[in-house]
Structure formats: C-alpha cells, structure tokens
C-alpha cells in the first residue's frame, strides 16, 4: 500500500457556488482512510475556512494535500491581494470582506481564529499584491 498520497484542487476566486468543494473532497478521502472522526472534524473546519478565504479574497488558488502515516498537510497557495498585517488578520472579529460577502454570512472575522483553533499547526505567509500561502498540518497520531 502507498503510504504517501497527494491531491490537488483548484479554487476560483469569487465563485461562492463552488466554495467548500475541495474541503468536501478532502473530507471524503480522510473518511475512506479511516482517519479518526475527531481529527476529520477539525480538519474540515480549518480547510473550509481557508478555502472560503481564497474564494472571498483571492483571484485564484491551488490546494495541495499531502497525506502520509504521520500527518495530513494542506497547503493553500493563492494569487491575490495578500495580507498586510497577519497578526491583525488573526484577531477575532477583524475582517476585510466586502459587504456582499458579509451579507451571505461570511466575513465575521472568525475564519482565521477558527483555523487556528482547529489546526494542529497553522502557518501563514503573505506578500501584498502577490498572494498568501496557508499551511494546515493535522497530526494523525499522538503529537510529538
């Protein structure tokens, strides 16, 4: 059996009808692999929020998923406006979402805090006017 798996998904900026598609595919894969349900639940929350952020803020993005026996790594790389101040973006309630996005019930400034709460490891790097990379790591066994 292969003990390393790799998947990629494209995310289209602004297309809310497809938001959550990649997260749903990742959830299905983790279920098929019999990953612990509590880990799947946390992975889904973190991944969905990251996916929606690409849809809400970026022009396009790619989600790279790498799974081995130790961890699930989900890397979201987008082309977009970038985040000028990541610490500020991490604050609960801080959002730069458009009013249209807010009317849909997004943009409450809860996305990044949700990601931080649910990911075992969260790394964000960003360059203004270029894009943002978010890496979510979920450990499949006891940490450490």
């Amino acid at each position: 059996m292969d003990n390393q798996m790799h998947f990629e998904y494209n995310v289209e900026g602004g297309n809310f009808t497809r938001a959550g598609y990649a997260s749903s595919q990742i959830k299905k894969i983790l279920k098929q692999l019999n990953v612990d349900i509590a880990i799947i639940k946390r992975t889904v929350v973190a991944t969905y929020e990251a996916e929606v952020n690409v849809v809400a803020h970026a022009y396009s993005g790619t989600i790279y998923v790498d799974i081995d026996t130790e961890a699930v790594k989900i890397r979201l790389v987008d082309e977009g406006p970038g985040i000028p101040d990541i610490d500020q973006a991490m604050e609960e309630g801080y959002s730069t979402a458009s009013s249209q996005v807010r009317e849909m019930g997004f943009g409450a400034g809860m996305g990044l805090p949700n990601m931080k709460k649910n990911a075992d490891k969260l790394e964000i790097s960003s360059e203004v006017d270029k894009g943002t990379t978010v890496e979510i790591t979920m450990f499949l066994n006891e940490k450490g």
């Binding site: 929350v45 969905y48 929020e49 929606v52 849909m104 019930g105 997004f106 409450a108 809860m110 996305g111 805090p113 949700n114 709460k117 649910n118």
Partner: peptide
C-alpha cells in the same frame, strides 16, 4: 446562527 463561520466552528 446566520454567521457561517460560527456554524462551521
């Protein structure tokens, strides 16, 4: 809730 991230979280 009407906030999607609230429901998600």
């Amino acid at each position: 809730s009407d906030l999607l991230s609230d429901v998600m979280g």
